[in-house]
């Protein structure tokens, strides 16, 4: 039985491996200038240190990473990350480990981040407004994974 506050960072970490372009576009690992590398580091740090929040983590997201990732894999990863969201609403923290990974994947997928309002339900509305097609794919994948 998992504790109520458990996050599946292990599952997220495994999934993030699929996103790595492995030199397909980049020449050699760009490390902290890569959104996927950053996301993996966040997951590793959260697991190793047993923390939910990384102070100032948001300011370290490599927003300048403009590489094109595989869309379907990004959508799958993002839907998996969204499933870890605890719907904190007013207590949402941008430096939450889950939020840091979500934001990084958003930059990779949308080219920008969406203001997260502490709820997956509201998020899908915002994602749909940002991009109809991707918003729908994301919600469908989220529901599909949730009902598995």
């Amino acid at each position: 039985m998992n504790a109520q506050n458990d996050y599946d960072f292990h599952g997220i970490r495994q999934n993030l491996e699929h996103l790595c372009l492995n030199g397909e576009i980049c020449t050699g690992c760009e490390k902290n200038r890569c959104l996927v590398f950053f996301s993996k580091k966040v997951a590793d740090y959260a697991m190793n240190k047993n923390v939910f929040t990384i102070p100032q983590g948001c300011s370290m997201i490599p927003k300048q990473d403009l590489k094109t990732y595989h869309e379907d894999e990004l959508i799958e990863s993002l839907s998996l990350v969204l499933q870890q969201c605890k719907d904190c609403r007013d207590n949402h923290d941008d430096d939450c480990s889950v939020n840091l990974i979500r934001t990084s994947l958003e930059y990779a997928l949308f080219g920008d981040s969406l203001a997260y309002r502490g709820s997956t339900t509201i998020y899908f509305i915002d994602a749909h407004n940002a991009n109809n097609r991707i918003g729908k794919l994301l919600k469908d994948k989220f529901m599909e994974s949730k009902n598995k």
Binding site: K31, N32, D44, Y45, P55, G57, M60
Partner: peptide
């Protein structure tokens, strides 16, 4: 000090 910054780098 920022532990995560060191971890990241």
């Amino acid at each position: 000090s920022n532990d995560f910054f060191d971890f990241l780098n």
